[in-house]
Design a protein around this nucleic acid. Structure first.
Length: 508
RNA sequence: GGCGGUGUAGCUCAGUCGGUUAGAGCAUGCGGCUCAUAUCCGCAGUGUCCGGGGUUCGAAUCCCUGCACCGCCA
């Protein structure tokens, strides 16, 4: 079994921002999760580097275009390294291998009649270098330049997308969770109620040179779709090689703004190429930044790099997955981030680890005690651990990250209550309760092992720290989840490690 | 303008697609514990489920309509 997951390739006309970081963190958590399940996993991200906006940005930065895209692409890559993103392949649309695949595919689709040469006429603004529709103009003038656009005819290449409309509608009906969550499937179906038009896929070099030359007409470059979307295949070495055979079809992860290209253009392109559609299109919402509170200083913080540096990589990763219901929009604020860190991570989980380990050291010299016969309270802990794990394993791959984590935190809450109910500090005062104290401590520590294992995809560094504090060697830690999640694998007699607070409170 | 979405506690939001008395977290107040990162535990709440109309034995949930906000087409 294999699992191939992609993020979009990010457009390099601007720096990485919160939305990019969210998509990439979600993808990373999913990739790590599936690796832990034991699936052969490939996780690809990268950058989209052609087109007029990039040229514009390069001119503005005073750099040759290639130097500019190198710089911004590296900036993205660095951000992902800082966020602990475990991508297997970082693709760039300026990679020679990608360019070659694009040209091969274009040739093939052209030869099979899927691409034709046609004329397009419209109102063109020289300032924007783009065509406008009548209805988009303000008093007949360009909304940006306040100039009157000229009627211009341009010859271009078009992809026969329209002929796939019926097929696509059928495919969506036959595969109801192909585009998910459901709301986005419905949106696509709404698009498809209108007749689908053919897709313009070229730009004359007189207007745009920074692109991939059409293999059948060197006066043109290909525009956006047959370049960018094909990264999902070129990154696998398509059409040759083993990777494509092993990993296609892909799980795509995108934000809702690029739903249409991925849900409509891309599958029809794949159909024209005679390929199997992607496995799922997974669509998420937006982080809403309250513009009122969005001061300039905060603007810098919302840059992923600054956020992780200030609040911690795992803290930010946890916040992303816990705070946003996948598919819906959510509000982002530093206040909300700090609230999550303090309440969930410092108070609930971090403190649970600290008090459990603290008691194990204070009462048992940091040695894992042997569990005695479990009573009802202990049985309940074991039951709830199993339930939390089962729910988590069910919700996480279904993209219900928030629910998965909320469920795990219910278990954490239960453990905090378990401590109060059992009052180990009282047991410690009674010599005859020694076995009972052993049992309580063991159930706590073993529960923490489960929690650490489940949190690995979300907070890899913190989960590892937990495992180290629990004295787990690699043999107990670095295994597929189903093997790790067996009650009682924490060995009595093994040595715990003291460590600093996992998630320090943030003073407000 | 067209299409789609959202509106639930002071705040942020769940509510698995009609079914007990509408929930969680945060924030607030009171009480308890001392193993712990001043943490944890218990108790207390507060609701015109945006307004109006309809379907139904029954609606936060389905339908119509109005308002507000958001997104896409761009």
């Amino acid at each position: 079994m294999s699992y191939y997951l992609t993020t979009p390739i990010y457009y390099v006309n601007a720096e990485p921002h919160l939305g990019h970081a969210y998509t990439t963190v979600v993808a990373d958590a999913l990739a790590r999760f599936h690796r832990l399940l034991g699936l052969e996993t490939r996780f690809q991200t990268g950058t989209d580097e052609h087109g007029d906006k990039v040229v514009e940005a390069a001119v503005k930065a005073g750099l040759p275009v290639k130097d500019f895209v190198d710089r911004v692409s590296a900036r993205f890559r660095q951000s992902w390294d800082e966020l602990d993103i475990s991508y297997d392949h970082y693709i760039r649309t300026t990679d020679p291998a990608h360019v070659k695949v694009v040209q091969e595919v274009l040739s093939r689709v052209h030869e099979s009649g899927g691409i034709y040469f046609g004329e397009y006429g419209g109102l063109y603004c020289y300032g924007c270098e783009t065509f406008y529709l009548e209805r988009d103009l303000i008093d007949g003038r360009c909304p940006d330049h306040q100039t009157k656009p000229t009627y211009l005819k341009e010859e271009n290449y078009f992809f026969r997308m329209s002929k796939y409309q019926g097929w696509l509608l059928d495919y969506i009906s036959d595969n109801p969770d192909w585009i998910r969550p459901e709301r986005y499937k419905n949106e696509v179906l709404a698009f498809l109620r209108e007749p689908l038009e053919d897709l313009c896929i070229s730009r004359p070099k007189s207007r745009l040179e920074w692109g991939i030359t059409l293999p059948f007409d060197e006066r043109y470059v290909t525009y956006v779709w047959f370049d960018a979307l094909l990264n999902y295949l070129s990154g696998l070495g398509y059409p040759g090689g083993d990777l494509y055979k092993k990993f296609w079809p892909a799980q795509h992860l995108i934000a809702k703004d690029i739903l249409k290209p991925h849900a409509i253009y891309w599958p029809t392109m794949l159909a024209a190429m005679g390929l199997e559609p992607f496995a799922h299109l997974n669509v998420h919402g937006y982080w809403q930044l309250d513009s009122g509170k969005m001061s300039k200083s905060l603007g810098n913080v919302v840059e992923p790099k600054g956020l992780a540096a200030q609040y911690g990589v795992d803290q930010v990763r946890y916040f992303f997955l816990r705070e946003m219901v996948f598919g819906l929009d959510a509000h982002f604020s530093v206040e909300a981030l700090v609230a999550r860190i303090n309440a969930d991570l410092a108070n609930d989980l971090g403190n649970l680890v600290a008090r459990s380990l603290g008691m194990a050291f204070k009462y048992r010299q940091g040695i894992v005690p042997p569990p005695g016969v479990p009573n009802d309270l202990d049985q309940e802990v074991i039951l709830l651990a199993a339930r939390a794990a089962a729910d988590f394993l069910h919700n996480f791959p279904a993209l219900e990250f928030s629910r998965a984590l909320a469920g795990l935190w219910e278990f954490i809450g239960h453990l905090n209550r378990y401590i109060v109910v059992n009052a180990p500090w009282e047991l410690a005062k009674q010599p005859e309760a020694a076995a009972r104290l052993d049992t309580v401590l063991y159930h706590l520590l073993e529960s923490l092992r489960w929690i650490a294992a489940l949190l690995r995809p979300v907070m890899p560094a913190s989960a590892l720290k937990m495992s180290e504090q629990l004295g787990l060697g690699l043999a107990l830690w670095d295994q597929p989840l189903p093997q790790v999640l067996q009650w009682g694998r924490l060995l009595p007699g093994s040595t715990l490690q003291k460590g600093p607070a996992l998630f320090p409170r943030i003073d407000t």
